[in-house]
Nucleic acid binder design. Structure first.
Lengths: 156, 156
DNA sequence: CCAGTTAGTTGCATGATGAAACTAAGTTGC
DNA sequence: GCAACTTAGTTTCATCATGCAACTAACTGG
């Protein structure tokens, strides 16, 4: 088969995330959902994407447990797409993407918005990698370890 | 045109990031590069991807300033692909993707590796969103603000 | 200088994407 | 209660992207 490769069975957690989020639209749909959008038409007009693609993406996000369908909150018979906790858990990913753009984009003057904390109105701090004891870590300070195989009961 | 939509001119920094990183392979190539891979053949065999796709992706990453080509460090006449600072700056994105998978994946037992701090061998702390003054922030504690238009000199 | 390796490119089949048209419920005006 | 409109999709078809395999050409090792 000449199918688009899926990373579903991959053992790398990054690949597994990308299997759910790694296309052009999913993270933008999630971004809008975090911003409060819920209805098919809202996503479609805000993102300006084709409705068939949106339809496929929404279904995939629901299948992945990132969005869930719910009866419309305005009393109409239509349904809404709302983020699950798993969906809201992508927030750090979006923040990381945003901060990367803010720091490295070739044309930062074209960036229209800043993420600020609601209380003070000041920009959110840059995400930091820290060790358990609080030390600041660079990529070079980290390494990958094999996850210990989880034994069921006292089998071994 | 029925071209794949590009987010290059979009004013949202997330869309702009996705324009460079938002396909199935680029972040995995960067992951391997962070892990130390440098040569075309290394990427190809490690990722198991078609060589033409790898070729296109590497060129795109170089064009985006994420990778740079350099003469091979082993003295051969071949070239290597090394991360630029902009490329290394994607590390938080990869960590966020990894942690999302670790926290929400339906089959976490299939995840093979853990990111640990090299010194202590202990897992890296979960990325946190914090305000300038250090308060821990949830998505609901944040909001978007329009970036003040940057005036050149004292034009206004 | 010949065999094998490295780093690609080309060709072709197939899958994904996108615009527009189409459909079918649900809602509104009267 | 029904015609007109809105919402939420699905279908169709052209085009783009992806993936495999085969091909090419430069480099390397003996």
């Amino acid at each position: 088969m000449v199918k688009r490769t899926s990373f579903e069975g991959d053992s790398c957690p990054i690949a597994r995330s990308l299997d759910a989020l790694g296309d052009w639209w999913s993270l933008l749909i999630i971004r809008e959902a975090l911003f409060g959008l819920r209805r098919f038409g809202e996503f479609q007009s805000k993102l300006g994407m084709a409705k068939n693609i949106l339809s496929v993406r929404l279904r995939a996000l629901v299948d992945h447990g990132i969005l869930a369908t719910a009866p419309a909150s305005d009393g109409s018979a239509y349904q809404e797409y709302v983020l699950t906790p798993k969906g809201r858990g992508t927030f750090p990913i979006l923040v990381a993407l945003r901060q990367w753009s803010e720091e490295f984009d070739d044309h930062p003057e074209e960036i229209a918005t800043i993420l600020v904390d609601r209380e003070k109105g000041r920009p959110v701090k840059k995400l930091e990698m820290r060790a358990e004891d609080g030390r600041l870590l660079t990529p070079a300070d980290t390494t990958l370890k094999l996850r210990p195989a989880r034994r069921r009961r006292a089998t071994g």
